[in-house]
Design a protein around this nucleic acid. Structure first.
Length: 461
RNA sequence: GGCGCAUUCGUCUAGGGGUCCAGGACGCCGCCCUCUCACGGCGGUAACACGGGUUCAAAUCCCGUAUGCGCUACCA
């Protein structure tokens, strides 16, 4: 049974990089009929907050990446918040000390920093100098950290699902901290204890953790725990190819949501950043991604986030959605909900890439400024509208056009452009066969909308 | 500095020794559709980082160099 987890630190909104890691975990779990676990890594008390945790959970829910076990849902391995598991980390740290594989370290932080600086200056590796390993004590009355002792010889090799075999020699590593002097665990330790306790089978995470895996495997070995499979996903980069960060502009999932991107489009786009469909398509729904996802098709190189392609993709989703489905999203985006909105959405949606753009796209309905047009032509339109009423459908518009053509002798662009101008006040917009019936109906259901005849009359005045 | 990872069109990528003088998508340019703006359709532009090997044959395998990135914390 496959069990994977997404383990964010609650230090702010979910970022697109974290979102993509979550997506890959989620797709992998769903593809294999496995379990997707959410674990909150909040042992860094200085940066973690409950508000941030709530935001991250909300962002994940908005994306539709629902988890099977987590801090809010509970599960067979609860609690899923590291701050609530500190006793467990202390217990394992003690076990390691008893086995002689870890030890109490009484060195002061400032002291260590000073030694490290000297080592660096002398060109030596800045590893721990083993003071407390050489003079092991079991005095618990003095403040101390728990440090892991790295064996002198040997190496660690993992078979990363995305990168293949990666090997590190122990000599490249110094003894490292497991438990800080305040009793809280360091990431590399808590992650191993949790992944083991929660029976994680596949660790899919960002590339920045790749070299940490060396330390983690050492801990698995020390505890005689089975080592999970690893898959390290490349970083998402900004336009300048450095790791995507705030200075590149919007990076949080919520910022894109507010900009009018759809959750489905975001999942699709982020999936595409590193993964490719077997048949090469790049617009696909979740079911397709779940059915076809595999780590073998995940690219090992970093990927630049391209807002233009993301926007294009979002447009594809908007164009493919029905107006009925779009309506609630548009209402939320533009804070406007007239009775004719659904029809208007259907008429203008192909010109929209982002939800808030609907505001501008429907402006020809809500706002009208009479243009300068030929008075005779305007009177011809007014006459036709009075006699036949405003067209209610495409055929009605075509019939009106035909009558106007006969009455004015104008045709093609000479006819349509002034007509468009007279009725919408603009020189661009959706095709008239759809725009005119929309105006006619909207003005009937909504007194704020000027009817076609009222518009033309303003041109004459 | 040490260790590790990466390197195909501007960008996302396909490619896993011959079918590749490298395919798709976004962007850009042109044409078509058309009352306009979009949408859509068609076509074009543009890449295997560099240098050595291995092989009858390399974008594909190996080594080196360069560049970028990550880790090297009592951060995650």
């Amino acid at each position: 049974m496959i069990r994977v987890r997404f383990a964010p630190s609650p230090t702010g909104h979910l970022h697109v990089g974290g979102a993509r890691t979550a997506i890959f975990n989620w797709l992998f779990a769903r593809h294999h009929g496995g379990t997707f676990i959410l674990r909150v890594e909040d042992t860094d008390q200085a940066r973690s907050t409950a508000e941030s945790e709530a935001m991250v959970l909300d962002d994940l829910r908005w994306l539709g990446l629902l988890w099977d076990e987590g801090p809010d849902l509970g599960g067979p391995h609860a609690p899923y918040r590291q701050s609530e598991r500190v006793d467990r980390y202390a217990e394992i740290a003690r076990a390691l000390v008893e086995r002689g594989l870890a030890y109490r370290c009484y060195c002061a932080e400032e002291e260590l920093l000073a030694k490290k600086k000297i080592a660096e200056a002398e060109g030596r590796p800045p590893h721990y100098d083993l003071t407390c390993w050489l003079n092991r004590r079991d005095d618990d009355s003095m403040p101390h950290a728990i440090r892991f002792h790295v064996p002198d010889d040997g190496d660690v090799t993992i078979d990363d699902a995305i990168r293949g075999e990666v090997t590190w020699k122990h000599e490249s590593l110094g003894d490292f901290i497991l438990l800080r002097s305040d009793g809280l665990p360091i990431y590399n330790f808590s992650v191993v204890v949790d992944d083991h306790d929660m029976e994680i089978t596949d660790v899919i995470r960002a590339e920045e953790h790749l070299t940490n895996t060396h330390r983690q495997v050492l801990i698995y070995r020390a505890m005689d725990w089975p080592v999970p499979r690893f898959a390290h996903v490349s970083l998402i980069l900004g336009q300048d190819r450095s790791k995507l960060s705030k200075r590149h502009g919007a990076t949080s999932v919520s910022a894109y949501a507010e900009a009018g991107f759809l959750a489905d489009a975001m999942v699709n786009y982020l999936t595409l950043l590193g993964w490719s469909a077997p048949d090469g398509r790049d617009v696909f729904d979740r079911d397709y991604a779940i059915a076809n996802f595999s780590l073998e098709r995940v690219n090992a190189a970093g990927a630049v986030f391209d807002p233009q392609k993301f926007e294009w993709l979002n447009g594809q989703y908007i164009h493919a959605m029905t107006a009925a489905k779009l309506r609630p999203l548009v209402v939320e985006a533009i804070h406007f909900d007239p009775p004719w909105l659904e029809e208007a959405i259907d008429v203008v949606k192909t010109s929209v890439h982002l939800l808030p753009q609907f505001r501008e796209a429907i402006r020809f309905v809500t706002d009208y400024t009479p243009p300068e047009i030929d008075r005779t032509f305007a009177m011809a339109i007014a006459g036709d509208l009075r006699e036949h009423g405003a067209p209610r459908d495409g055929d009605g518009v075509k019939a009106m056009n035909e009558r106007l053509r006969k009455a004015t002798g104008l045709k093609g662009k000479e006819l349509f452009m002034p007509l468009r101008l007279a009725l919408t006040g603009m020189d661009h917009g959706p095709e008239l066969v759809r725009a005119i019936p929309l105006l006619a109906r909207a003005s009937e259901s909504d007194p704020r909308v000027l009817s076609p005849i009222a518009r033309v009359e303003q041109c004459i005045r």
